[in-house]
Amino acid sequence: MTFNSAQIDPHQLVARVRQWAGELGFSQIGVAGVDLSSAEPGLMQWLEQGFHGSMDYMAAHGLRRARPAELVPGTLSVITARMDYLPRASGEGWQAIELSRLRRAGEGTVSLYARGRDYHKVVRARLQKLQDRMAESVGPFGHRVFADSAPVLEAELAARSGQGWRGKHTLILSREAGSLFFLGEIYVDLALPASAPAAAHCGSCQACIDLCPTQAIIAPYRLDARRCISYLTIEHAGSIPADLRPLIGNRIYGCDDCQLVCPWNKFARRSTLADFDERAGLNAQPLAHLLGWSEAEFLRITEGSPIRRIGHVRWLRNVAVALGNALRAAAQGFCAETARAALAGRLDHPDALVREHVRWALSQGADAPLS
């Protein structure tokens, strides 16, 4: 719908939306148009090459991802929102601290974004409150809220609306905030003024490409999800390819490596919300302990966390791989006997996926010294 003289000016509305969004914990608001046709060839090529792996929903929705007005008929503009998630307690040098965690082979590492409350719930609930405030100002209007919950071409919309530029790792980068933020969208049937896109500032840097443990960033701005540790430990439901298992290290849910080495993340902003504070008992825990969680324990400890979405079986699969890597590394201070005992306790697990990865893990530690 378009505004008439009795309604608020669209520029004023966007200004108010920015104010309300700040009060709700969002860091930045942008507006994008709905013509994403220039992004369609790249999307189709990515799908045709199979880089989406087993994420069949991406192929099923096809070009609807790049056509907001087809996904939600009547959409005239897309409001994009950014919410920072670096835990509030993160101190100076947090990138170096996180990189050092990867050298502690006997401890599991969980991606930064997943150490607090499930962002899907937080972002979606606050976007809905933002929409409610808009409706109070302009009256009822057509809308739909998204928080990584539907076939939305999220990064493209974010880049077009000035949230940042597409980094070589394919994530959105901001000069003021790095890349540690969530994105959300409100599709609206309001004609709003589009924000100016941000210029790219990666330059000749390719630190993210060089460091990627599995070389999933096959070229600048090109990611093969099938090799990405985040995909393998979260989205992928089956067996992790044997040649990639040793490269996963102690990462049991997600991977932050490309963000940890990005120079722009020295500007990453700490969240203003307690929701993303790190929960106790999830990160930097002994792998043997994590492998011992029963399904009931897993569900209790991960309640309200994004980790719960992978389920207990995939959790055990991931932890088993990390334990195998720790056994092979025979890291100082790591008790191989405890690890082997924990793995042996899962050899008769009822799920074949768990048994397969446990057997592999035990084979990695055949020569590991007892301690």
Rank of each mutant, 00 (worst) to 15 (best):
A268R: 00
R346D: 05
Q364F: 02
I234C: 06
G74W: 04
A330L: 11
E295V: 08
D224M: 10
L24D: 08
T338D: 15
P286E: 12
A125K: 00
R64E: 05
V72M: 00
G203V: 03
D224S: 09
S37P: 03
H52K: 10
L71W: 11
A191M: 01
S54V: 00
R88W: 00
I229M: 10
H169P: 08
T75M: 00
R65M: 13
L130C: 04
W293H: 04
L291W: 00
Q49R: 15
M134I: 02
T2W: 07
Q7M: 12
A368F: 06
P193F: 03
D351E: 14
V152S: 08
A284W: 14
R133H: 12
M83S: 07
L86A: 06
E156W: 04
F276D: 02
K129V: 01
G254H: 01
P241D: 08
D348Y: 07
Q285C: 05
P306A: 04
W165K: 12
F51W: 10
L47I: 12
D348V: 13
A114P: 06
A320E: 02
G162K: 07
A69R: 09
S271F: 07
Y113N: 14
R160K: 13
A125Q: 03
H169Q: 08
L291P: 02
I218T: 15
L299R: 14
